[in-house]
Design a protein around this nucleic acid. Sequence first.
DNA 1: TCATCCCGCCAGTGG
DNA 2: CCACTGGCGGGATGA
Length: 897
Amino acid sequence: MNKRKACSGKMNAEDKENWSFEPHESTLKTPLKQAATSNWLLAEKPPPASGHLTTPPKPNEISPGDPWTPTANLKMLISAASPEIRNREQEKRLSDSRNEIPEDHLSGDEYEKSQPSRKEKSLGLLCHKFLARYPSYPDISKNNEICLDEVAEELNVERRRIYDIMNVLESLHMVSRLAKNRYSWHGRHNLKKTLQILKKVAEENNYSQQVELIKRRQYEEEPEGDDQKIQLMAKHVRPNDHTDICFVELPGMEFRAVVNLEVAAKILIGEDHVEYLDKSKFKTKIRRLYDIANVLSSLELIRKVHVTEEKGRKPAFKWTGPDVFSEILAAQPVSTPTATASSHPAEGKSSKEHCSKNLFPTRSKQGFIRHPSLMKLAKGAQSNQRKIRSAPSSPVKKNASQIPPSFPSKMAQLATICKQQLDEQSRDFKKRKMKLEHSTFPSPLGLPPKTRLKPKPFLLPSQSEILPLIHNSVPPAMLPLHPNVPYALYLHPSQTQLVTAYNPSFTVRPVHCANVAGSKSTTEPSSQVAPGKIFIEDSGSNGEGSASCAKGQDLWLAKEQEGTKDDVVHERHFKRRRMEGSPMKKCASEEAVLHDVLLGASVESKKSRCPIASRLDQETLTSSAVKQSKSEKTDQHLEGQPTQQRQGEFLEPDSVTTVQEMPATFAIATHKTWFPSGYLIPLPHCTKLGNETIFSNKEKAEMCAAEQKSYSSPIAGGIPVTSEFTAVNFPAFHIAPVNLKLPASSVATVPVVNGTAVTSDQADSIQAPSASVMNFTLQHLGLIPANLQMSANQVLRSGPVCQGAEHVGFKQEKAKQNVLPPYGDELNGKSVSAASLQQATVPVTSSILDNCHDFQASCESAVVPEFCSSFHESDRISQATLAIPQREHGVSTEDKF
DNA sequence: TCATCCCGCCAGTGG
DNA sequence: CCACTGGCGGGATGA
């Protein structure tokens, strides 16, 4: 059949089978399209009359010109599917015309030429043929059995190739294995749910973060100068098919739009070890990804695009499948393995389970082995999930309607507690506060003192207690964080001095707005919104790590003066930092920041065992936040509820800011306007995984030393982080590339337990309310679906539940209403269609069966997961294409199909 | 030259 | 035991 075969003379059973065109012994059992009587026309061949077995006609044997032959229909279908296939068909026709000559009469060369071209034998085309045989939505009551042998024979391919397709389809639950050599066809009945589940899995495994991380690293490794890099940052996909592809300019989305196979392979293998792996291994992985990608392309779940980069034109894939984001919220949480996307009776086991099984090397059978570094992430997620599952009475939140009624009361009680402390401590602060308010620092955003930062005295690290310091009228957004973990807080520049005044140990660093360039938002009413960010780090616990950050303030000041409007300044700032030879130079790179936006700090932070890394990530987050804030201004509310409006609902005249008073302190100073806030990031938490950093060895050593000093990383062999918070799968803490959207009046306080000394009671007292607040916060952060509630047990496995204040309930309600996550707002602001989001490209996976899940999941995760929450009407919205004017330069992308 | 991916070997699995 | 399954990598093909 092919050269190799012809030359080697090898011919195995399959070969013989393929060579044979003898009538099949059995009646064709393969279900053909049932939707309409004409469905079978789409199949490779019509259903044979019962009892009349016919030799499966070779495609070439059927006149290509007959519009009513199955082959012709298939060709029409395929041709309509894509230009490339059309081209293939054209080539095929040429081949067909050659094939009209009996092969027996062909010479050697002619025989060679008569053979179908490589393209004609591609897996993608084969998959098209295969899919054309079956209805997308078969009657599940019927016996939709697929016999691989028959299919292989009918399609004139080796059974091995059918396996390639079936494996992918099986992972999508489009088919299920009935028995050896037999599958059951389910069509797309379960596809959407499966995708949702896979998306969930992707989220759990932080694929999106990994993608971002790898991309970022790839980018950083490029030798281009700053200017070039900046230019590259503006690159984006511009598919030629503008009707269904929209580049989404969102924080972190710039480079997310297309994920190439290299990135996917690195994720699958584990980027850390890629360099150590045999290149052939990598190549193999890529090959598998091609296989999967071809099948998924045939399923129209992904689309191949080409992105022109500095290194040339690179292929990549973007998600073009159904929008599952709006429905992902209803998907079963991971903690419920019993949840299944399978609606088909044939699928007895949980899809989720199935996905998980294939995602994680738990099955006895040797499957695709996740790279150790990846396993860390995966196991971490698993562990968290396990804990959540194991939690007694872990309620499963499926939708907003199931929000535990106790939530408001919890919040209220917490708020009450906070209020009490606030009242007490505010007195002590009064003097200092007043002093600060009249300091050289201008009033934050020109707001009346009433609305300014209302800090509270920081407690010493030894003071292990909850410090829910919030204004009486404002529910706190509390994030349970590890006590021993240094936290990063992003504040408005005008608040930094205030903060540092409270605690000299805090390290304040400027965080430039990475996304300023190319994302000007001149119409922004609130230009004061985060022109720059100040990173406050508890140097007390990480003194070493702050050194490189000291330079920041002056820079920030400059930034503050120039505002966000000045891209040049931004770039200058960026360059300056780089030129300073800071150990953070890499992290500080503009692209790094951009890349981190959606990715969040998670992966990178995990890899980098130092606060600096986290800091950088936070910078990214801040950048994201800045961008986010900008987008908010132009929020066009896909949900019909303008962000501004929603925001306004949160605004309270007597907004007051509180300051977290903790060893690992952070607080969100607020002002009477919306601003990207609330990046409460437990730095050490990010260092649990990985050991690769972008820092020098010396820096690593220092950082590690600092880290161990402040806390112990389980991986480092130290005392495991005791906080139960870390047991919860909250990549949010790493990522948080979001605009917290806290009202100006809102305050983010973080209960911090003092290290291992925290007693269970203490923990409970902290965690219980925190769980509620965390839900709220996470929802705002877009890190969990707005309608998804994690119980205290789930989140914290704690007991006591706070009861109390009503305004918390209001907040929660708002949280529920504001299903639009930060990205959604960004989305709105950019008038981005859901479709474009969906089409943000995908990482591809390998190992056809197992890794198809990865692929799928990655595809899903390629888009900010929480985008989904923004598109309840995604199906409709996704069809709308809204042009995104910005970033039309730099990269040209063309669809392969 | 490189991206793409066909092809089939072969080891593991399971009836 | 043997067919099925699918991981894997050589190397052909096309741009």
